[in-house]
C-alpha cells in the first residue's frame, strides 16, 4: 500500500484505511456492477441490439429522457428563482422554506409517489381543478413529468444558491452606476456568473430523474409504449424472469448514467476553475 504514496507521511493508518475502503467498495459496488457487463457479454451483439432497440424499449427511453429533460428545464427556471429569492430577499418563513427545499431529497420515493398520485388524481387536491380544464395528470405521461420535476427540485437550488451568495455585489453596483438598468446588469453581469452552476444543477436533476423509479410508478399509469419508464420496463422483465432482457436494458441505463456523471464532473470542474481565475 505504501508504494502508492506520492510522499511519505508521519500520519498512521494509510494502508489500513485505504485497504479497507477499497476492499469494501469493491465487494459492495464494483464486483456486482461488473457482473452486469459480464452477463451482457453472454448475449450476441445482434441479440443485444434487438432488445435495446425494441419499440417498447425505445418508447420508454423517449419518455424517460424526454420527461427528465423537461423536468430539468422547469427546475432550472424555478430553481433559479427560488435560489435568488432565498439569497437576496428577506421575508417571513425564509429559513423554513430554505430547509424544506431538500424535502424531495429526504422523502422516500415511494411516499412521494403515492402522494403525487393522490394529489393529481381526478378527485385529488390539484387534480380536481385540472380535470375540468381537460388536463389529466395522474396515469398519463404528464404524471411522469410531475414526479420527475418534484424529485429534481433541490439540485438546481442547491448548486445555484452558494454561487449567488458568493457573488460580489460591487460588480453589480459598478454596472448600475455606469448606467445599466437592472435587467441589463442581470443579463450581462449575473447570468454569466450563474451559468455553469445552473447547468450543473440541471444536469444533476436530469441524471437523478433518468434513473428514478419509486416516485414515478404510482402516478404513471405504466402503459407499455405510452407511460412506461425504462426502470419499470427493467423491473417488468425481471418479474417475467427475462434476465438477459433486463440486463441489456440495465447496461444501456448504466452507460447513460456514466456519461451523465462524467458531464456533471466536467461542468463542476468548469465551474470551479472559473471561480479560481477570478
Amino acid at each position: 500500500m505504501s508504494l502508492l504514496l506520492k510522499q511519505p507521511s508521519v500520519l498512521p493508518g494509510f494502508g489500513l484505511t485505504l485497504g479497507f475502503a477499497v476492499f469494501y467498495f469493491s465487494l459492495i459496488v464494483l464486483i456486482p456492477l461488473s457482473g452486469l457487463f459480464v452477463k451482457t457479454s453472454a448475449l450476441s451483439w445482434g441479440q443485444f441490439w434487438d432488445i435495446v432497440t425494441n419499440p417498447r424499449a425505445v418508447a420508454s427511453y423517449q419518455l424517460t429522457f424526454g420527461a427528465s429533460l423537461v423536468g430539468a428545464l422547469i427546475n432550472g427556471f424555478f430553481g433559479s428563482i427560488i435560489a435568488w429569492v432565498l439569497v437576496r430577499y428577506h421575508f417571513p418563513g425564509r429559513s423554513l422554506v430554505d430547509a424544506l427545499v431538500d424535502l424531495p431529497f429526504a422523502l422516500p420515493t415511494a411516499v412521494a409517489g403515492i402522494t403525487l398520485a393522490a394529489i393529481y388524481s381526478s378527485n385529488g387536491w390539484i387534480g380536481r381543478y385540472l380535470e375540468p380544464l381537460g388536463i389529466k395528470v395522474a396515469f398519463t405521461p404528464l404524471g411522469v413529468l410531475v414526479a420527475l420535476t418534484f424529485i429534481g427540485l433541490p439540485f438546481v437550488v442547491r448548486t445555484v444558491q452558494p454561487v449567488l451568495q458568493d457573488l460580489d455585489k460591487e460588480v453589480e453596483e459598478a454596472a448600475t452606476t455606469l448606467g445599466a438598468d437592472r435587467w441589463q446588469t442581470f443579463r450581462a453581469v449575473i447570468v454569466p456568473e450563474l451559468w455553469p452552476a445552473l447547468l450543473t444543477g440541471m444536469a444533476m436533476a436530469f441524471a437523478r430523474a433518468v434513473g428514478e423509479y419509486g416516485s414515478v410508478i404510482f402516478i404513471a399509469g405504466n402503459l407499455p409504449l405510452k407511460s412506461e419508464i425504462t426502470p419499470l420496463l427493467i423491473m417488468t422483465k425481471l418479474e417475467q424472469y427475462d434476465y438477459s432482457g433486463a440486463t441489456a436494458l440495465g447496461v444501456v441505463m448504466l452507460l447513460a448514467s456514466f456519461v451523465l456523471a462524467l458531464t456533471i464532473n466536467l461542468l463542476q470542474w468548469w465551474s470551479t476553475t472559473r471561480h479560481m481565475n477570478q
Binding site: P32, L33, G35, L36, K39, T109, A207, V210, G211, E212, Y213, G214, P231, L232, I234, M235, L238, Y243, A246, T247, G250, M253, L254, S257, F258, L260, A261
Partner: peptide, 13 residues
C-alpha cells in the same frame, strides 16, 4: 448515479 432498479438487478444477477 445508478438507477435504484439497477442496484437491485446486479444482486439478482
Amino acid at each position: 448515479a445508478v438507477s435504484p432498479v439497477i442496484s437491485g438487478l446486479i444482486y439478482v444477477l
